[in-house]
Simulated assay, not measured.
Amino acid sequence: MKIIYAIVSSDDGNRVTDVLNEHQFSVTKLATTGGFLKKGNSTLMIGTDDGQVEEVITLIKDTCGKRQKITCNVPAPNIASVSAGYMMMPMTVELGGATIFVTDVERFEKI
């Protein structure tokens, strides 16, 4: 038995959970915060048999794969006096993706 920890953006958390549930995988979703960008994430915990790990990872990849979005760079609030002449420039940012950990489960009980 394995437990899969998948850290996805909070935007993708519900979609991934729904897809995994549709494929009969039980998921526990935790609201977490990333350390680097301090953005909201969802950490999904999925317990599964060894032979189904690749299926779970494929479903996660297909649901929250990396994608690009064009956004505008907004000035910080502490430079409001300078922002009158500040031009917002569109920039492309990468969204989505997942960080996945797979670990062995020594013992599992469902009570």
Rank of each mutant, 00 (worst) to 15 (best):
M1H: 14
M1W: 14
K2C: 03
K2W: 06
I3A: 06
I3R: 04
I3G: 01
I3D: 01
Y5D: 00
Y5A: 00
A6L: 05
I7K: 03
V8P: 03
V8C: 01
V8Y: 01
S9E: 08
D11M: 07
D11A: 02
D11I: 12
D12G: 02
N14I: 01
R15I: 08
R15M: 05
T17Y: 00
T17V: 10
T17A: 09
D18C: 03
V19Q: 03
V19M: 10
L20D: 01
N21L: 15
E22T: 11
E22S: 15
E22F: 12
H23N: 14
H23C: 06
H23Y: 04
Q24C: 09
F25M: 01
F25H: 04
S26Y: 13
V27Q: 00
V27W: 00
V27K: 00
V27N: 00
V27I: 07
T28F: 02
L30F: 15
A31M: 06
A31P: 07
T32P: 05
T33G: 00
G34W: 14
G34D: 15
G34M: 08
G34A: 09
L37Y: 12
L37P: 09
G40V: 00
G40A: 10
S42V: 10
T43E: 06
L44T: 12
L44E: 11
M45T: 05
M45E: 07
I46F: 04
I46T: 08
I46S: 02
T48S: 14
T48H: 11
D49L: 04
D50Q: 10
D50L: 08
V53Y: 03
E54Y: 08
E54G: 04
E55P: 03
V56S: 06
I57R: 03
L59K: 12
I60W: 06
D62C: 06
D62N: 14
T63S: 13
T63A: 14
C64N: 06
R67T: 09
R67G: 02
R67A: 10
Q68F: 09
K69I: 07
K69L: 10
K69H: 07
I70L: 02
I70C: 01
T71D: 10
C72E: 08
V74C: 05
V74E: 06
P75Y: 00
P75F: 01
A76Y: 02
A76N: 04
A76L: 07
N78G: 09
N78R: 09
I79F: 11
A80Q: 15
V82Y: 13
S83A: 14
S83D: 12
S83R: 05
A84R: 10
A84K: 12
G85V: 07
Y86D: 06
Y86M: 13
M88I: 12
M89T: 09
M89A: 15
M89K: 09
P90S: 13
M91V: 10
T92V: 15
V93S: 04
V93N: 09
V93Y: 05
E94H: 06
E94M: 13
G96A: 02
G96N: 05
G96C: 10
G97A: 12
I100N: 08
I100W: 12
I100H: 09
F101Q: 07
F101K: 03
V102F: 09
V102S: 15
T103P: 05
T103W: 06
D104A: 13
V105M: 15
R107H: 11
E109K: 05
E109W: 03
K110E: 13
K110F: 06
I111T: 13
